[in-house]
């Protein structure tokens, strides 16, 4: 397991933004499309997100398999909404009238609109999250969270969790290879086999992981972790004028989605 799409070397504008601001941006975008669930609004934000990938030189198709899954799942969401929505102007029937049977499964304009709304929302949430991960250094994120008065002992937990990922990934592979060499294969045929598969994978990893707790916590305590209310950092996040400008933009976006929902911006809501 690796931290996906990590591209902290690039010096693009998105990379340089404060990590907390980027997290806030991600939350605001997700909240915005939940508050104002228009497919045009979601589509617009999705276009901006894709533009963000371009601007920050992050390849969009990191994993072909994942992109295929995302596209298939968004298509599934679209079909699901179209089939579940009976109201609106009927455009066609999936099963047309034949003699005395049918017609069945109407496709309506409202259903298609809802389909776009949900599938674009899904793609926006996933792609904006991918972009966030690609342009954010987790260590700097932890630091920026401490600047928001979150105690560093808690924000450091994120750093620990992410730092141990490659190790657990390696151990997971080792355990799986060891099982295979002993003739134990993954099986889901019946509950007892599922439990056995999980037991054989989880137990060795758990013992290995928990046996590190003492060494690491004693080492941290020995270095005075948590002794002082503040700590020093090798790398720090900073807040610039650009961050302030982006914060204003994001706040405007959130405010706009609230006003659009409440119907205070009828001219704009007619467009998006």
């Amino acid at each position: 397991m690796t931290i996906e799409h990590q591209s902290t070397e690039s010096g693009s504008m998105l990379h340089r933004l404060n990590p907390s601001l980027k997290l806030a941006g991600l939350i605001i975008i997700t909240t915005g499309i939940l508050i104002y669930p228009s497919w045009r609004f979601s589509g617009l934000l999705l276009l901006l997100t894709i533009l963000g990938f371009k601007v920050s030189n992050v390849p969009l198709h990191v994993s072909k398999k994942r992109i295929h899954f995302l596209m298939a799942f968004s298509a599934l969401l679209f079909i699901f909404q179209v089939l579940m929505t009976a109201n609106g102007t009927i455009l066609l029937f999936i099963i047309p009238k034949h003699d005395l049977m049918g017609p069945f499964l109407p496709v309506t304009d409202f259903g298609i609109e809802k389909g776009f709304q949900m599938s674009l929302r899904f793609l926006l949430v996933v792609f904006s999250s991918m972009l966030f991960v690609s342009v954010t250094d987790p260590t700097l994120l932890a630091h920026s969270l401490t600047r928001l008065k979150i105690p560093y002992r808690y924000s450091f937990a994120l750093v620990i969790a992410l730092r141990f990922l490659p190790l657990f990934d390696m151990e997971n592979k080792t355990v799986r290879i060891a099982q295979r060499s002993r003739g134990i294969s993954i099986s889901v045929q019946g509950m007892s086999r599922i439990l056995r598969t999980i037991r054989y994978t989880f137990f060795p990893l758990l013992v290995s992981a928990l046996s590190r707790v003492d060494a690491l916590s004693l080492s941290m305590d020995g270095r005075g972790f948590g002794h002082s209310r503040t700590r020093t950092y090798l790398r720090k996040s900073c807040w610039t004028a650009l961050d302030s400008a982006v914060l204003v933009l994001l706040s405007t976006l959130l405010l706009a989605s609230i006003l659009l929902t409440l119907g205070f911006l009828p001219q704009i809501s007619a467009i998006i």
């Binding site: 397991m1 002992r153 808690y154 450091f156 937990a157 994120l158 620990i160 969790a161 992410l162 141990f164 990922l165 657990f168 990934d169 997971n172 994978t201 989880f202 990893l205 758990l206 992981a209 928990l210 590190r212 707790v213 003492d214 690491l216 916590s217 941290m220 305590d221 972790f225 948590g226």
Partner: peptide, 17 residues
Amino acid sequence: TRNIVTVAILASLGGSL
């Protein structure tokens, strides 16, 4: 600190699996 490390390591293992 031990509690924090335990939470972080288990969360990491859970996320990785």
